[in-house]
Amino acid sequence: MENLYLRAFEYSDLSLLNKIRNDDILFQTTVGNKYYISSEYDKKWIEDKIFNNNKQLYLVVCCRGIDEPIGYVCATNIDYINRKAEWGGLIISKEFVSKGFGTNAGYLLLDHLFGELGMNMVYAYVKEDNKASYRLSEKYGFKKDGLIRDFVFKQNSFHNAFIFTIVRSEYENLHLNREERSLDFIK
């Protein structure tokens, strides 16, 4: 994980983020809906992530050495009173997929949510047919708590989603003692 770090969004990230957010294949697997997003719209979206981030956390994933942004991670619906947050997503550019970058970026986000922000629980919704996200959730230590029927309408039909959760004590027991873990996520 020392090859990655997370940082705040910058306006210079516009072209990468707009490319990722307009990827048709990506949105077939997520619980989010497909929108056609102009670069002008994404300028405003990035501005919102920079200045109105009280209940959401969007961070760019970068590779050390080349200092190149390769994707982003996010948590939404952050509830500081009840100490919980929704896993909002993990998006990595196609050219960096299947190289471990996504997995490691997810660990960095969870480290930040549990370690720095003091969350007690992180929950995620995973589309029932999204096997990759299902496996990744289990790899992180999330537990499948149930199935939500007809959770999202997309591609002209309703789709079910699983809800996954992980609580702080489970995450600490599973991950914080690993030698390769590093909380050095800020450049």
Score class of each variant (00 low, 15 high):
G71Y: 07
D79R: 10
V122K: 03
D79I: 09
M121F: 06
C63G: 02
L136I: 12
S93G: 09
E138Q: 13
M121P: 03
G65K: 07
W87F: 15
L57M: 12
C62H: 00
T76M: 04
A105V: 08
Y107Q: 08
E86D: 05
P69D: 07
E95V: 00
N104E: 14
E68P: 01
L109E: 08
G115W: 00
G115H: 05
M119A: 06
I92G: 06
L110C: 09
D111T: 06
D67W: 00
V122F: 02
E68A: 02
W87S: 03
E68Q: 09
K94V: 01
W87T: 05
L136A: 13
G118I: 01
V126E: 05
N82S: 11
G65W: 02
V60A: 13
K139G: 01
A124S: 15
L108N: 04
G106T: 09
G65S: 04
R83I: 00
F142W: 07
K127N: 09
V126T: 04
T103L: 14
E68R: 03
K94A: 06
F101A: 09
L57K: 12
N104K: 12
K139D: 01
C74W: 02
I91N: 13
L136E: 06
N77I: 07
S93V: 01
V60Q: 05
L90Y: 03
S137Y: 05
N54F: 08
K127V: 05
E128D: 13
M121G: 02
I70N: 02
L57H: 05
V61P: 00
